[in-house]
Amino acid sequence: MAPDSLTFIFLNAALINNFVLALFLGLCPFLGVSAKKETAWNMGLATMFVMLVSSVSAYGINWLLTLLKIEFLRLICYIAVIASAVQLVEMVLKRFSPILFRALGIFLPLITTNCAILGLALFQTNREYDFLQSIAFCIGAGVGFTLALMLMASLREKLALAKVPTVAQGAALSLMLAGLLSLAFMGFAGLGGSHA
């Protein structure tokens, strides 16, 4: 596969360089909202939507900033756009699904400080993706994020029934699990050949 083909960009973001398990982006929701499969799924979808909105806007902003030669304002503009996108999602959810709105709780506004989203915008700028490539990249990242969240939630639902030593309960165990998942995802490195 050519490294800049849309399929490769998608697979690369979703599996080979999974945002959560290989690049360590978006760990807070990954550890925080992964107790139940249903919340994890909804969180994944909400994040993917914010990713899509901010990726498209980041593309536009970058074009404008480069045109005006004020690239040093990039970071500030990106974060402002992401914050507005999150606000948008929050309003939509509150209107159409108050139950979901409550289930996600504090983690919804915290999508603003989810590094996966700012990371996505920064990576697509650094790698100079064109518009279609950016879209493929952001959908891939969203799918990868949701996948990691779902895997973790499924594991933790089973784990709730298991008996673990008191020392290992809580965050330490989640991190060890994440480590094992990350080890498994390293197997996907072969997919990309030498480009990964």
Binding site: L21, A172, L173, M176, G179, S182
Partner: peptide, 9 residues
């Protein structure tokens, strides 16, 4: 990457 999770854990 997995090493990071393991060491922090």
């Amino acid at each position: 990457p997995p090493g990071g999770f393991f060491v922090l854990g």
